[in-house]
Design a protein around this nucleic acid. Structure first.
Length: 310
DNA sequence: AAGACGAAAGTGGTTGA
DNA sequence: TCAACAACTTTCGTCTT
């Protein structure tokens, strides 16, 4: 196992790293950056196969999960059915405990319970993988704990968390898609997304146009060659610095459009624009840039000539 | 007739004073 | 907080297939 230990804070270079094993986080004491989340638990895992007291060292149980509002570990203080066993002294104690437990749990847990139901709904609507759903739930849980939901609607924070989780796992859905699935305005999703990621110190890698290709390509029913050609074009485009600052979907759409032309699988600009959620004009602009900088015109002409022969 | 192209004006978000 | 700005959209007229 080659697990690299982080010794310096990548943000400020400080060496005052605080390791919180319970939360699985490493936090820089100097600048507050969350250096590493969900780190591996390095404490000794006790395994004991053949001694008599092995039972007590075994760790079992259902896997812990963030999509369960109490992470599947909730405790209920007593059931009414137990009451008949207790004397009056114990009954008092019982009620005090129950009240106490009720107080501490309500606010946050009730919120989580509702929110995670919504999260699951949206997630399944978008057919997101389980890992993304988990990540989103984790992000949302953190957000609630830090009181970031105050003043925002629960749904919008859910949508923001999901969007962030998608980005982190490189299974990008567009803001439009999230907006549609969650019934939250696009700009609101974007706003809470930015807010949540900033407040939680989640590093956001700029989304890569190539990640969109596969999905767009399949909804346009393009061949695998066209798809890989599009990725190829994208790589060249990135080297020519055509991608920075532009919307990733527009670039992906244009690359796919060109690639389709080259392989004689023509799609109209409108068709491509629709699946990518951009306008024809944007595709045209990107398309024009691609032709100019990447010298692709000859490839297109080739396929045109071929067609004439047929 | 449908699609491609381009110009011009409008929109929402970022940035820097 | 405001203005400048870039990316993107909307709309519309013209050209091409």
């Amino acid at each position: 196992m080659s697990q690299e230990f982080i010794k310096k804070c990548p943000e400020c270079g400080g060496i005052n790293l605080f390791i919180n094993k319970d939360k699985g986080e490493v936090i820089c004491k100097d600048c507050g950056l969350v250096v590493e989340e969900k780190m591996v638990d390095f404490t000794q895992e006790w395994r004991d196969f053949d001694s008599d007291d092995g039972e007590s060292k075994r760790r079992t149980g259902a896997p812990m999960t963030y999509t369960q509002y109490d992470q599947g570990l909730g405790t209920e203080v007593g059931q009414k059915a137990d009451l008949y066993k207790l004397g009056s002294k114990d009954k008092n104690k019982f009620f005090r405990l129950r009240k106490w437990q009720y107080r501490i749990s309500t606010a946050i847990e009730r919120n989580l319970k509702l929110a995670l139901a919504e999260l699951k709904r949206v997630s399944s609507y978008l057919k997101l993988p389980k890992s993304v759903e988990e990540e989103a739930a984790r992000i949302y849980t953190l957000a609630v704990q830090r009181g970031l939901v105050r003043g925002r609607s629960m749904e919008s924070v859910v949508a923001g968390s999901l969007y962030a989780a998608c980005r982190r796992h490189e299974v990008p859905r567009t803001l439009d898609e999230l907006s549609e699935a969650s019934n939250i305005e696009k700009k609101e999703v974007g706003r809470t997304y930015r807010f949540v990621t900033r407040e939680l110190g989640i590093t956001i890698l700029p989304s890569n146009p190539a990640d969109y290709i596969a999905r767009f390509s399949s909804s346009l029913r393009l061949s695998a060659e066209t798809q890989s050609k599009a990725v190829e074009i994208l790589e060249k485009a990135q080297k020519a610095e055509l991608t920075s600052g532009r919307g990733p979907t527009g670039i992906a759409a244009a690359a796919l459009y060109v690639s389709a032309l080259i392989h004689g699988e023509k799609r109209t600009q409108r068709e491509v624009a629709d699946v990518a959620g951009v306008t024809e004009v944007t595709i045209r602009n990107r398309y024009k840039e691609l032709l100019e900088k990447l010298d692709l015109e000859k490839d297109i002409k080739k396929t045109k000539k071929k067609k004439k022969k047929d």
